Amino acid sequence: MMNVGPEKKDVYEDLNPHDTYFFKIGAHGLVCFHGRNYSIKQRLTAEQTSKLVSDSSFYRISTNCYVNLFKISEIRDNVVMFRDETHGIKTIHVPRRNLEQIKRLLPDAGSQRASEINQVV
């Protein structure tokens, strides 16, 4: 009898953009995805990049940087925080003019989470 452990997902092979915290678009279709414990660069076609930036899950905070609204855990001052119990906190600076729009677009995961974010800011 052979015991087989659970099959682990390889983030580098099976990257799902919706699992990332934010991504940055570089030159020649190079996109850098930042997640809880990784930064992965992938070359995407113009069509793939266009589809990604038009996805309502992502909000543009600068010319080439988009944050995943569903992964935001807190907003403090001008910093958006993505919290993970195992890997800690990853942060990104957001221009002040974009903060109010991000707050309005945050997925309503319950009135408690929305009030916590508003209290912190």
Rank of each mutant, 00 (worst) to 15 (best):
S54V: 12
K51R: 12
S50T: 04
C65H: 06
S73D: 11
D77H: 01
F70R: 07
T86W: 06
I72W: 07
F58Q: 03
F58I: 06
Y59F: 15
R83T: 11
S56T: 15
N78P: 00
E85H: 00
R60D: 10
H87A: 03
R43H: 15
S54Y: 09
I61M: 01
E74R: 02
Q48A: 14
R83M: 13
L52I: 12
T63F: 14
E47K: 12
F70I: 06
L69M: 04
A46T: 07
S54W: 04
N64Q: 13
K51N: 09
S73K: 07
V53C: 12
S62E: 13
R43W: 10
R43M: 15
N78T: 08
D77F: 00
T63K: 14
D55P: 00
S73F: 06
T49K: 15
C65M: 07
S56Q: 14
S62D: 15
K71P: 06
F58L: 11
D77G: 00
S50M: 14
C65P: 07
T49I: 10
M81Y: 06
Y59P: 07
R83W: 12
S62K: 09
R60I: 09
E74L: 05
Y66R: 03
F58N: 06
T49S: 15
A46R: 14
Q48F: 04
G88Q: 03
S56A: 14
V80I: 14
N78Y: 05
D84M: 02
D77N: 06
S73P: 08
L69K: 03
S62P: 09
I75L: 05
R43I: 11
V79L: 04
I72H: 07
C65S: 08
S54N: 13
V53K: 15
S50G: 12
I61L: 01
S57Y: 13
T49R: 15
I61W: 02
Q48T: 09
E47R: 09
S73H: 03
L69G: 06
S73E: 09
V79Q: 00
I72D: 06
I72C: 02
Y66M: 07
E74T: 04
F82C: 04
T45A: 14
N78D: 02
V67M: 05
K71W: 08
Y66F: 15
T45C: 14
Y59I: 01
C65A: 08
H87Y: 04
N68K: 06
S54C: 11
N68Y: 06
V79C: 06
T63M: 14
Y66C: 06
V80F: 03
D84P: 08
T63N: 01
N78V: 09
D84W: 01
V53T: 12
M81D: 00
F70Q: 12
I75Q: 02
N64S: 15
N64M: 08
D84S: 10
S56D: 11
I61K: 09
F82I: 00
S57L: 11
I61N: 05
M81L: 05
H87W: 03
E74F: 03
A46H: 13
F58E: 10
Y59C: 01
T86Q: 13
E47D: 12
L52W: 09
D77Y: 01
F58S: 04
N78L: 01
L44W: 13
M81T: 01
I75F: 04
T86H: 10
A46L: 11
T45L: 13
F70E: 10
T45F: 13
M81E: 02
E74C: 13
Y59K: 10
D77T: 05
